[in-house]
Amino acid sequence: MNILEVNIEHAGYLEKKSTIEDISFELAENELVGLIGPNGAGKSTILKAILGLLEEMRGKTVIKGKYAYIPEQPTYYEELTLWEHITLVKAVSEDDDDNFFNRANELIAIFRLQDAKHHFPSSFSKGMQQKLMIIIAILNKPKLYIVDEPFIGLDPKAIKDFLLILEKERKRGAAILMCTHVLDTAEKICDRFLLMNNGKMIAKGTLSEIRIQSDTDGSLMDCFYKFMERDQ
C-alpha cells in the first residue's frame, strides 16, 4: 500500500516561474527512499510541496495517514524545556498510550539527553536540538517520515542510533522519505533513490536500476556524477 503519492507538474515560489517540474513518485509501507541532489536542485521545494507549503503549485500530493517532518534546521519553543516539549506533543496528539512517557524517557536515554531533560533547547548544540526533533517525530508514531538532512550535527553514535530506530519504524510499517547529501550512507540504507538536478528528476529506482540508467557499475556517487555530467 502506498503511503505517499506525488504528482507535480510544476511548483515554485514565484508565479509563472517553476522551481521543479515533472516530479512523480510514490512511497510504500516499510520503504526508505533517498532524495538526492546538489544544493539548489529542488529537493527542499519537493518537501515543501508535499507539506502543502507552496502557493505556486500545479499537481497533487497524497499522504495516507499521519506524517512527521524532521527539518534540517531544528525548530522549537524557546520558552519550553525539552521535557515540556514532550508533554506538549502528548497533549496535542491526544495520545492515550500509557507507555508514552516511558517511550520518551527511553529515547532521551538513547540520545544521551538525560542531563538536559529540564533545560531549554536554545542552550543546546545543533546536534542536541536535532535529537529533540527526532524524538518528537518518533513519539508521534507517523505512517510517513519526511526527513531533511538528518545527519547534520549528529555525532556518529547518534547517527547509528537514529538509523536503528528508523529500521524499527519501517518494520512497524512506516514509510520514510529522506533528503540527504551523505551518499555513502544513503546507498547502504535506502531501498530506492530519487536523483534531482536543476529542478528535474534525472533518475529514479533501486541502485541496480540507477546503475543501468547511468551506464556504470560504480557507487551511488559514481552514478550521480555520471548523470550530472550528462545534465550539464
Rank of each mutant, 00 (worst) to 15 (best):
R58P: 01
L14Q: 14
G37R: 00
F25A: 04
I23F: 00
K66I: 10
I189T: 04
A68H: 04
I210C: 03
I165T: 12
E31Q: 05
Y145M: 04
T216L: 05
K66R: 15
K90E: 15
L80F: 12
A49S: 09
I165K: 11
G199F: 03
F124R: 06
P121Y: 09
L4T: 11
A49L: 10
I3H: 04
A104S: 09
C190S: 02
S208M: 11
E5K: 14
N30T: 14
V182P: 03
K66P: 06
L183W: 07
S44M: 11
N7G: 10
Y69M: 12
K48V: 09
G205D: 03
A11D: 03
Q114C: 11
K226Q: 13
D22C: 00
I86K: 00
G40Q: 04
L154E: 13
I46R: 01
K160F: 15
E55Y: 14
I136G: 12
P74Q: 06
D22L: 00
E31P: 04
I8R: 00
I50S: 08
I152C: 00
G218E: 06
N198M: 09
I46D: 07
P74I: 07
A91Q: 15
K60A: 13
N39S: 03
D184C: 08
I70V: 03
E26C: 13
L132F: 09
T19G: 02
G34I: 08
E31H: 02
I8D: 02
L27F: 06
